[in-house]
């Protein structure tokens, strides 16, 4: 097994608290008619208290499946084959359904990739936010007082995410709100129970640019206020550069590079990270050519042990045919590329 123990990112950065979430060698697979798709193969990552971790990679690189596994939401024909998911020291893969349900939405919350379809069209917005409060808020008094208190919290939450006159709009259905407003409502629902960890799966993909910026600001603002950790899943390194403390770059079901955002972006160690950087437009230099990475993510069925980026890599060597583990690449950094070691030697 090619298990890698990641170097603790904090070794150089001084004392860091225990991670809120620690994923170790996670493997998640799906049974399909073509064979077994290894959507996540050996992912390890940490999320520290109060930080924003960016998880970036092209579509199909396994970002959503990784965090669906964390939430215990992988459904047949998929399953978590192996690995540990430690939330504040408890291994979530060993919890019962009931214990997981108690955590979901309360300790760890998630927003879905598409806000337009994540809200139930047949239920009012008020019901959809109140139900999560009722499911988790053990401190709510029983009966009438409890209902009033839940309602007060729902209105407060909708107000926090910037819905105008929220109390009047509790009885409205999702279709009566704009796309950006629905995104905010979904965030309000996710944050209703004040989770320690918010997983935001591509929170901006479905939105236009100005609203994108607003939603990201909103998440950053609430993170600061509530002191929670955020995992920001995106395929846009630009978003990561602006909002995340650290970044995990994923490719074809694996982590290929990780480190502090600024360091990774100014000096990417993996050719895939470099490729992602080259493919985003630069506002500072509009003449800079945008070069999308050529080729496609390989099919995740029966992959050979070689480097998964080999088919698209401009720097490939014959040595890339052997499997490559994550290698330390500077303070708090690691990358899955044989060039990493050679570079430092050279």
């Amino acid at each position: 097994m090619t298990t890698t123990t990641l170097p603790r990112p904090d070794t150089a950065a001084g004392d860091r608290p225990e991670p809120v979430l620690s994923v170790r060698d996670l493997r998640t697979a799906f049974k399909t008619s073509h064979g077994i798709v290894r959507a996540v193969s050996g992912v390890s990552l940490d999320v520290y208290p109060g930080e924003c971790l960016g998880v970036v990679g092209e579509s199909g690189s396994g970002k959503s499946v990784t965090f669906a596994s964390v939430m215990g939401l992988v459904k047949k024909p998929g399953w978590v084959e192996d690995g540990e998911i430690l939330y504040r020291g408890r291994d979530l893969t060993r919890l019962s359904d009931r214990e997981l349900r108690a955590l979901r939405g309360k300790d760890i919350a998630m927003t879905m990739q598409d806000a337009l379809t994540a809200l139930n069209p047949a239920l009012t917005v008020g019901e959809q936010i109140l139900e999560v409060l009722r499911a988790h808020a053990d401190d709510l008094p029983r009966g009438r007082a409890g209902r009033a208190e839940a309602r007060r919290r729902a209105v407060e939450m909708l107000d926090l995410v910037g819905i105008p006159s929220p109390a009047d709009r509790l009885n409205e259905y999702p279709h009566q709100f704009s796309g950006g407003m629905r995104q905010r409502i979904m965030i309000a629902i996710a944050l209703a129970c004040r989770p320690r960890l918010l997983i935001a799966d591509e929170p901006t993909t479905a939105l236009d640019v100005t609203i994108q910026a607003q939603v990201l600001e909103l998440i950053a603002d609430i993170r600061a206020r509530l002191g929670m950790s955020v995992v920001l899943i995106t395929h846009d390194l630009g978003v990561v550069a602006e909002h995340c403390d650290r970044v995990v770059v994923m490719y074809a079901g694996q982590v290929v590079e990780t480190g502090p955002t600024r360091a990774v972006i100014s000096d990417p160690k993996h050719p895939y990270t470099q490729g992602l950087l080259d493919s985003i437009p630069r506002l500072s230099d509009l003449s800079h050519p945008i070069r999308p990475i050529q080729g496609q993510v390989p099919e995740l069925i029966d992959l050979p042990p070689e480097c998964r980026f080999i088919g698209r890599c401009p720097k490939r060597t014959p040595d890339c045919r052997t499997g490559i583990d994550m290698r330390p690449a500077g303070p708090g950094r690691a990358a899955r590329c044989i060039l990493v070691g050679e570079e430092t030697e050279a």
Partner: peptide, 9 residues
């Protein structure tokens, strides 16, 4: 899926 992520019964 979102309802499941909310930890509803």
């Amino acid at each position: 899926r979102f309802a499941e992520a909310k930890g509803l019964a």
